[in-house]
């Protein structure tokens, strides 16, 4: 196994394309090193992307946040503006692991590891975030929900990697929230995770909403109908119940040691309601 730490995107693409499937991107290593140690993967080459400047930047361009794929959870949490604009995305990133894991874990790694329970993915999808992907044919930008295709599977081609995440410009009175359910208070894998992002008008009516759910299907999913239920309403209790029903209807979970399919589906509805209340409260003050 060889290790490379290129300083430019072009050099990284060349290294990644050269070795084909036996090559792995290294960001924070909190999934990759565990898998290496367990013998689950045995790459020929590891390409560390952390020395590439674009993967490490957090910028706000005309109100639009851009976060490098290899920014750690700790750095994102400490950024003076990121949490104010996208509190849901940042709270999801800050939920990953312990302080030690926060020092290393990245958004790019959380997405590309493609665990159905990855915490930041529902928040990123609800936010309408897009991935800037570098590859042998130049740059392309795709919605976050087009990256994971199944557990451990992503749509990126040979030589491609995620360089950064781009977030849309926020209209006034917009906010987001992410909630997950775990049996402990820290350090566990989500039984269900729900991300919601919405915008209110001056009268407090919802003008747009996106709801995404994790750990209830092979990949995190957007529930278009749940978002649509909220639009035009003041997110009153009756509407929230109808929205939760749409979330439950979209769930296709499995039974495992963390929870049965029935339990996961019920919890998804409850979390969707609670997360929406938080997002509405934040949007009123945004």
């Amino acid at each position: 196994m060889r290790y490379e730490s290129p300083e430019t995107t072009e050099a990284a693409v060349e290294l990644l394309a050269g070795e084909g499937p036996r090559c792995r991107v290294l960001a924070g290593g909190t999934d990759l090193l565990v898998q290496l140690r367990a013998g689950m993967i045995s790459p020929e080459r590891i390409v560390d992307i952390k020395r590439i400047r674009e993967t490490q930047e957090i910028r706000v361009d005309d109100g639009a946040l851009v976060v490098g794929a290899a920014v750690s959870g700790a750095e994102l949490g400490e950024h003076p503006q990121a949490k104010g604009i996208w509190p849901g995305v940042v709270e999801a990133a800050e939920l990953i692991g312990s302080t030690q894991i926060q020092g290393r874990a990245t958004l790019g790694g959380n997405l590309c590891n493609a665990s159905p329970a990855a915490d930041t993915v529902p928040a990123l999808i609800a936010a309408g975030a897009r991935c800037r992907i570098a590859g042998p044919h130049g740059m392309r930008t795709i919605p976050v929900e087009d990256v994971c295709t199944g557990p451990g599977q992503i749509s990126l081609g040979a030589g491609e990697f995620v360089l950064a995440f781009e977030f849309p410009v926020r209209p006034p009175r917009s906010s987001d929230a992410y909630l997950r359910f775990i049996p402990r208070t820290e350090m566990d894998i989500a039984v269900v995770g729900v991300g919601i992002n919405l915008t209110l008008d001056e009268g407090g009516h919802c003008v747009s909403a996106r709801v995404a759910v994790g750990a209830v299907a092979p990949t995190a999913i957007v529930v278009e109908k749940a978002g649509a239920t909220l639009v035009g309403t003041r997110c009153d209790e009756q509407t929230l119940e109808a929205m939760a029903a749409e979330v439950r209807a979209a769930c296709r979970p499995i039974d495992d040691k963390r929870g049965t399919a029935e339990y996961r589906t019920a919890v998804a509805g409850v979390l969707a309601i609670r997360a929406t209340r938080i997002a509405v409260e934040r949007a009123r003050n945004a």
Binding site: Y3, L33, V34, D48, S98, Q100, G103, R104
Partner: peptide, 23 residues
């Protein structure tokens, strides 16, 4: 050796990390 226990905690460039999860 899997990031769960923190017995290997060290500080790298000012950040607390698990040395077992750093190459």
């Amino acid at each position: 050796a899997s990031g769960d226990c923190g017995a290997c905690s060290v500080i790298v460039d000012g950040r607390l990390v698990c040395a077992c999860l750093v190459l």
